[in-house]
Design a protein around this nucleic acid. Structure first.
Lengths: 156, 156
DNA sequence: CTATACAGAACCATTTCGGTACTATTTAGG
DNA sequence: CCTAAATAGTACCGAAATGGTTCTGTATAG
């Protein structure tokens, strides 16, 4: 639920690792070894990332992968988009067609879209370079809301 | 993925419907009928919501459910927390124990936590009342960047 | 005391997910 | 050339999660 798949999780690990040495190529086997993951799995992740243009692949002996762009120019949103099958969005809406059509007329949907936008922007705001950096790299003002304040009743 | 479950989706529909008439009680059957969903399913959702204190239940003949609090005091985060089993979080980290421990020392994790916080705050910022309102009701500044704007925030 | 309605747990079918295997293609190097 | 190394792509399978239903129990109105 509201959780990225393991594949995507592995993807961030792999990408972060590759980002540590922009100059060289990493073979799938080397990455699997270094990260303690299965070779087939890492290989699958890398293929997908390559297909989406996030890493360059070099085939043949001495081949391997490296970042297609500087780590600072790759966002978490892109990595997630590449590795998750379904298109981005917290709700489906369309799938259960026939539900939303009914009398409620689904004004809810509009607000879900807004929530989606916020979530997505959060993911676009974090670059791969940020992920490799210790914490402070991620811009982040309000560490957590205070327990109060909510329910201020919007009233745009 | 990165998608809420259908149960949670139904939950928002049900809650929104109940919120339209704070004074009266809705039976599960009535809600199911009105939303075009299966009775057992709606019933299950309502039971869960009741168990988490988001709705009050009245048993017996002429029983039913109503909101435990005003719609403006119930957040989407609460609804999601109630209906999704697993605790909130985009990553698991702990599960694949042994992976993160390795040399990379998982600085990544720290940044995932930050992303989580931002996502969660987005969900806490939207009340049930907002969901029922047409779009503009959802406050929607830039939760991540704007250092100013919402600076009233207890930042303890 | 009966009909209505919620409470809770258990259950099953289907889908999704994680992981593996297999075949084909590309390239370096002797 | 020919072989070894390495990626590309597809297909497959077992396990877990999900969605949905059913059944039994309890409370309450009339």
């Amino acid at each position: 639920m509201l959780r990225i798949s393991k594949i995507t999780d592995y993807g961030t690990l792999v990408m972060t690792r590759i980002a540590t040495r922009p100059e060289r190529h990493f073979s799938a086997a080397e990455l699997a070894e270094g990260l303690g993951l299965g070779l087939p799995t890492v290989s699958k992740v890398l293929k997908t990332l390559a297909r989406h243009g996030l890493v360059n692949s070099l085939r043949g002996a001495h081949g391997g992968y490296n970042l297609a762009r500087p780590a600072s120019a790759i966002t978490m949103a892109e990595i997630i988009d590449a590795l998750e099958e379904q298109p981005f969005g917290l709700t489906e809406c369309s799938a259960s067609a026939g539900v939303c059509e009914r009398e409620s007329d689904c004004r809810i949907r509009v607000n879900w879209l807004h929530i989606n936008t916020v979530v997505r922007r959060a993911l676009e705001d974090v670059s791969l370079a940020d992920m490799a950096e210790p914490a402070h790299a991620v811009r982040h003002e309000h560490p957590l809301r205070g327990p109060d304040s909510r329910s201020k009743q919007t009233v745009s």
